[in-house]
Amino acid sequence: MATHNDSLTTQLQQAEPHIADGGFTDQLMQQIAGQPHVIRPKQQRAMWLAVAITLLGSSVAAFGLSHASVPDLQLLLVPSWRTGFTPAELMAMLAAGWCSALFMGGLALVKLR
């Protein structure tokens, strides 16, 4: 450190107040706890597992949609395919697929925190 010992330096240094922490550090550490700078290997494995299950869930949902027998749905998405699933079966497949995707996506987010 340089030394600048003159009256101006002294005045400047004396003019400076000590700023009390006042929760500054706690607030910062809460932010840090919520945003780790590294993803640990265990979290990485959980993330890849979540991605794989999300893809699987989305595939199930896509399969359900592509085999839709509800006329409106067919009209909107896949007009020419018809397999004879009942609306209840179709909705169950869709719901299972999307719930699985949402659940695993949420789990991935929780694990990454």
Binding site: P17, I19, D21, F24, T25, L28, M29
Partner: peptide, 17 residues
């Protein structure tokens, strides 16, 4: 993280000012 909190406490006043 406690060690980092100590670092913050050492420097917060000067840096904030």
């Amino acid at each position: 993280q406690h060690a980092f909190a100590q670092l913050v406490q050492q420097h917060q006043s000067a840096l904030r000012y």
